[in-house]
Lab assay of single mutants.
Amino acid sequence: CHSECLGNCSQPDDPTKCVACRNFYLDGRCVETCPPPYYHFQDWRCVNFSFCQDLHHKCKNSRRQGCHQYVIHNNKCIPECPSGYTMNSSNLLCTPCLGPCPKVCHLLEGEKTIDSVTSAQELRGCTVINGSLIINIRGGNNLAAELEANLGLIEEISGYLKIRRSYALVSLSFFRKLRLIRGETLEIGNYSFYALDNQNLRQLWDWSKHNLTITQGKLFFHYNPKLCLSEIHKMEEVSGTKGRQERNDIALKTNGDQASCENELLKFSYIRTSFDKILLRWEPYWPPDFRDLLGFMLFYKEAPYQNVTEFDGQDACGSNSWTVVDIDPPLRSNDPKSQNHPGWLMRGLKPWTQYAIFVKTLVTFSDERRTYGAKSDIIYVQTDATNPSVPLDPISVSNSSSQIILKWKPPSDPNGNITHYLVFWERQAEDSELFELDYCLKGLKLPSRTWSPPFESEDSQKHNQSEYEDSAGECCSCPKTDSQILKELEESSFRKTFEDYLHNVVFVPRKT
């Protein structure tokens, strides 16, 4: 048989008469490798580009789960590009990614509803959504962080984005990388972005840091009482949809009607710091009717980097990364020049730590249904340095008659930039024990000054392991946590139920 035959053949030295091919099969003959313009397919066939392209389009058009959109890589027609490569849609070739590779997620039936953290986790790592997304989240724990972890990498949506009755959302900033909504599939009414009845939605994105392009379709905003109209108009300008909307697409009466839409800028007039305090004062603000001013709200939190936005980490279910302080308005003076500047002394802060701070007014709604208010920009203030805590785990070892090696770990709280350490030492008198000992005694162990690591005695271990207080009263049991108490109650309830079950099964009433 021919060298490319495997198993047997019907005619000697003829690659077209093989029972099976050793390498690849091409047009009725066995070959060692697939010549151009053919590609290896499933490690035994040679196919042309049209064959591989037909497989790709067949799966793409069917949208069946589990099928493969075949691509070409290293002269092979394979189910998908290997790690580190992405497909070129024009020629199906796998090309190296520039940075992290995109991950295209194809949605069944063309859309997916995100109504819980669990459903959001199914899209973790996706960068391109081939379909439409509907966000409908009523509640949950730590929602802002969970949504950002699972949806934060999405850069492109081919269909539309719909935010509907998501009472738990305060902001859409968890879509931190969303840059493009194509609108290839539109919501009824030709809408590519749809926001309806979101009672706590206050911000779409921080438009000073976020760009969003909507290729096709219109915007729809109705019944978002805490979303200011200025935020919607800003989205029109940034996304390129200005002029597409009709009169009733953006409701003037049901958007922002319960919001404090600040239209003035508060400026800080005085800032002073110490290692654990920050004193702030800002310019006074009074609405047209000074009785509408209820006070100020001061927001602050630790910020290692200057990239904080107002609604980071917030949701309507209680999660809030900001510390909020309510401040009463100052006494009002008739003389504008003698107006008191409101302020606040922030206490209990960490030394040498940068804080993000902003302040906003708290006002009631005027009778004319106009909203007044003022808010400052987010500023960054760093507390002063102070003395560091003591170095940890000092170790001293003498390696000769004239040297001592000293080692330690950095302090747990540096409280500033540590530039150097101060080492103090003092000579001590020799131990009298060394002169009084009889060095001729056998088995004498000389006193040693070398360091030995501390260890816990058996008594201390027994005390720590004991669940009861000892007789001397030195140790006591740790208080039980809520989960331990709940577990004990469940076990007790189970024992009672099981005992009742045994009584009912074992003891049967005697027939009379």
Rank of each mutant, 00 (worst) to 15 (best):
V104H: 12
C105G: 00
H106F: 07
H106Q: 12
L107E: 04
L108Q: 06
L108C: 03
L108G: 12
L108T: 13
G110D: 09
E111V: 12
I114H: 01
I114Y: 05
D115A: 04
D115V: 02
D115L: 02
A120C: 12
E122D: 06
L123C: 05
G125W: 07
V128A: 08
V128N: 01
V128G: 12
I129S: 01
G131P: 00
S132R: 02
S132P: 02
L133A: 02
I134P: 00
I134H: 01
N136T: 03
R138L: 13
G139L: 10
G140A: 15
G140F: 06
N141I: 08
N142C: 02
A144G: 12
E146H: 04
L147P: 01
L147F: 11
A149N: 14
A149V: 14
N150G: 04
N150M: 07
L151P: 00
L153S: 11
L153F: 08
I154K: 00
E156M: 09
E156K: 08
I157E: 00
G159A: 03
G159K: 01
G159I: 00
Y160S: 12
Y160E: 03
L161D: 00
L161P: 01
L161N: 00
K162G: 13
R165L: 04
S166Y: 02
L169K: 00
L172P: 02
S173K: 13
F174A: 09
F174G: 02
R176V: 12
L178P: 00
R179V: 08
R179F: 09
I181A: 00
R182S: 09
T185N: 12
E187M: 14
E187P: 09
G189T: 05
G189F: 11
Y191L: 05
S192K: 01
F193S: 00
F193N: 01
Y194N: 13
A195D: 00
L196C: 08
Q199D: 15
Q199W: 11
L201D: 00
R202S: 13
L204I: 10
L204V: 05
L204P: 02
W205R: 02
W205A: 02
W207M: 06
K209Y: 13
T213F: 06
T215F: 09
T215E: 06
L219F: 07
F221N: 01
L227S: 01
C228Y: 04
C228R: 04
L229M: 06
S230K: 14
I232N: 01
K234V: 13
K234P: 02
E236V: 14
E236K: 13
S239K: 05
S239C: 13
G240V: 01
T241G: 15
G243A: 06
R244V: 06
R247Q: 08
N248S: 11
K253P: 11
D257P: 03
A259G: 09
N263V: 06
N263R: 12
L266D: 00
L266C: 03
S269M: 07
I271L: 07
T273K: 14
T273G: 04
S274A: 04
I278Q: 00
I278V: 14
L280N: 00
R281S: 14
E283W: 03
P287C: 14
L293T: 03
F296T: 00
F296D: 03
M297P: 00
F299T: 07
Y300M: 14
E302C: 08
A303V: 13
P304E: 09
P304I: 09
P304N: 12
Q306K: 10
N307D: 07
T309S: 15
Q314E: 14
Q314A: 13
D315K: 15
C317S: 05
C317M: 10
S319N: 14
S321P: 03
W322Q: 03
W322T: 02
T323R: 04
I327R: 02
D328G: 02
P330W: 02
L331V: 12
S333H: 06
K337Y: 12
K337R: 06
S338L: 10
H341T: 14
H341V: 07
P342G: 04
G343A: 11
W344E: 07
W344V: 05
L345R: 04
M346D: 00
M346P: 00
R347Q: 09
L349A: 05
W352G: 01
I357A: 08
F358I: 08
T361R: 04
L362H: 14
L362A: 07
E368A: 11
E368Y: 11
R369A: 04
R370H: 03
T371G: 05
T371W: 12
T371Y: 15
Y372S: 07
A374W: 05
S376D: 00
S376W: 00
I378N: 01
Q382D: 04
A385E: 09
N387Y: 03
S389C: 04
V390I: 14
L392M: 15
D393E: 07
I395H: 12
S396M: 04
V397P: 14
V397T: 09
S401T: 09
S402D: 10
I405N: 13
K407S: 07
W408M: 01
W408T: 00
P411L: 02
